[in-house]
């Protein structure tokens, strides 16, 4: 007689989200663009939005995000993602439309389109990757570059007398009445990654509820252009970016504030 002991059962705790395509990404090892992709995809899965979502990718390292997400997607011109997303959302008000933009794309060349989308209260979600640098073009100064930070186009460190101070996008957009949700999060460790995910979820919920423009600014790393290992780069985010870019909720719709508090109390 043969008896077989069935293994103690196990449950699946985490797996790659369906909203991510199977494709292997071109991102450098340890680049948090990948993390941000994963978080957005997890949220789309959890809110069951994959089939009803349209992504507008931007120009920057994330230029191919349109094929990394398994959703309908467009690739906008540099800086124009919010304008393109406006065109799409106005035609499909019942679909979820989000842009995925870097800091050169959103805060430099595309600032006007971003601001005006917020001013119109365009009911779209913006995932904003702040890595303090132009990644794709090889590490030039961005509007988000820290004071004194050396880049390939500020070799002596960013001189704020000549180039101004870093732009605070989450705070700036929070001041606009059309903005419903504007927060800054970081992805430098697991705890913060989870907080970032929560914010992304809230941002999409804001859009689902038709409350207006939502943006999640994500402090992100660029190990390649910062010339660091991926783990050093995350420490650099913590030690150097966090003091300049305080994490926080700069604007949260009242309806969502109360539910959040209600849960916590």
């Amino acid at each position: 007689m043969v008896t077989q002991l069935v293994e103690p059962t196990e449950k699946l705790v985490y797996q790659r989200p369906d909203s991510l395509a199977e494709l292997y990404t071109h991102y450098c090892p340890g680049c948090t663009h990948g993390t941000a992709h994963r978080l957005v995809a997890e949220v789309l899965d959890e809110l069951r939005l994959q089939n009803d979502t349209i992504l507008v990718a931007s120009v920057g390292c994330s230029v191919f995000s349109y094929k990394y997400f398994d959703v309908d997607a467009a690739e906008a011109a540099h800086g124009r993602a919010c304008a393109m997303a406006t065109g799409i959302k106005r035609v499909h008000p019942d679909k979820i439309v989000f842009t995925y933009q870097g800091d050169g794309d959103l805060a430099s060349i595309g600032l006007a389109e971003t601001m005006h989308a917020a001013i119109r209260g365009e009911n779209i979600t913006v995932i904003f990757i702040n890595n303090a640098i132009y990644g794709m073009t090889g590490g030039q100064m961005a509007p988000t570059t820290l004071p004194g930070q050396e880049t390939t186009s500020s070799p002596f460190g960013r001189d704020v007398r000549l180039t101004g101070n870093p732009i605070h996008v989450a705070e700036l957009l929070a001041a606009i009445p059309g903005t419903a949700y504007s927060v800054r999060r970081s992805m430098h460790d697991a705890r913060h990654v989870l907080q970032a995910k929560k914010a992304i979820q809230t941002a999409f919920t804001v859009q689902q509820q038709g409350l207006g423009f939502s943006i999640v600014e994500l402090l992100s790393s660029c190990p390649t252009n910062w010339k660091m290992t991926p783990n050093e780069a995350l420490s650099w985010v913590r030690d150097n970016m966090l003091p300049v870019y305080p994490l926080g909720d700069y604007k949260v719709p009242e309806s969502l504030q109360s539910t959040k508090r209600g849960k916590r109390d």
Partner: peptide
């Protein structure tokens, strides 16, 4: 949670109920 490339699948063990070996 931190893996940028979504390479990791995680399983957690579920202790067999009352540790009774199931005969099959």
């Amino acid at each position: 949670v931190v893996c940028p490339d979504g390479c990791i699948t995680v399983y957690r063990d579920v202790p067999a109920p009352k540790a009774q070996p199931v005969l099959k």
